[in-house]
């Protein structure tokens, strides 16, 4: 058995189309889920930071706890919703990339919401009087605070990306790991492990790690330069 690193290098060098398809699908699913998570989570998190209503504390605690939602449970819930015998069965979404996006978005959402809430809450304490003085009400403050908190928010969004891209339980259940259709990096690793092709599995893991690493490095560099430029 060749070393996993050699296999990984060989795979990358060969540019195997099956592998590039899997990588492309993984990135597509996760990036889409992260985008949806941000579109919903950023305004919701900021709203939660600024809003005052009864049970607010309970909701904050609930979203914090949901960050630890086991992916398999999220996957199972989405499966039961999307199954033909479930309430959304007519959409025929089970075993499709869209189903995987939904499951991952559910995993990412609590992370984005909780992080946004904490970042925006801190900023709000600092900005509150100034924004009010300049004529911004609570609603108008939301985009301002999100934009001024952008460097910290990127860190949290990356954490969400990390959770989604490393996740296998949920996408396996709702995607079905169908070759050429819903097979992602993580489900491919699971499959190769179950076939006893441990070298290939580790090689795929190395590639996944490299992708995550480069995305994180890029975002970190971006955040560093932004910190330097924006103070």
């Amino acid at each position: 058995m060749d070393g996993p690193f050699l296999i990984a290098l060989g795979l990358i060098a060969s540019g195997d189309p099956a592998l590039t398809d899997i990588i492309a699908l993984s990135l597509k699913v996760t990036l889409t889920a992260v985008s949806i998570g941000c579109l919903i989570g950023l305004p919701l998190g900021a709203g939660l930071a600024l809003a005052q209503f009864p049970c607010r504390g309970a909701i904050v605690v609930a979203f914090n706890a949901l960050m630890g939602l086991p992916p398999v449970v999220a996957g199972l819930l989405v499966y039961l919703m999307l199954s033909r015998s479930g309430p959304l069965g007519d959409l025929a979404l089970l075993f499709t990339p869209t189903a995987m996006v939904i499951a991952q978005a559910i995993l990412i959402l609590p992370i984005v919401i909780s992080l946004t809430r904490s970042v925006v809450e801190d900023l709000w304490a600092e900005y509150r009087e100034q924004l009010r003085s300049l004529g911004a009400g609570r609603l108008r403050a939301v985009p301002t605070l999100l934009w001024d908190g952008r460097v910290s928010l990127v860190t949290g969004i990356l954490a969400g990306f990390g959770r989604a891209s490393a996740e296998v339980g949920a996408v396996l259940i709702v995607g079905g790991n169908i070759a050429g259709h819903t097979r992602t990096m993580t489900t491919a690793i699971t499959l190769e492990t179950s076939r006893g092709s441990l070298g290939l599995a580790v090689a795929l893991g190395i590639i996944l790690l490299l992708i995550t690493l480069s995305l994180n490095a890029a975002a970190w560099g971006l955040a560093q330069s932004a910190r330097g430029r924006l103070g």
Partner: peptide, 14 residues
């Protein structure tokens, strides 16, 4: 932009 366009293509798969 990239994310939104990829969302479009995924939703379009069926």
């Amino acid at each position: 932009l990239c994310a939104v366009s990829s969302l479009g293509s995924i939703v379009a798969v069926p």
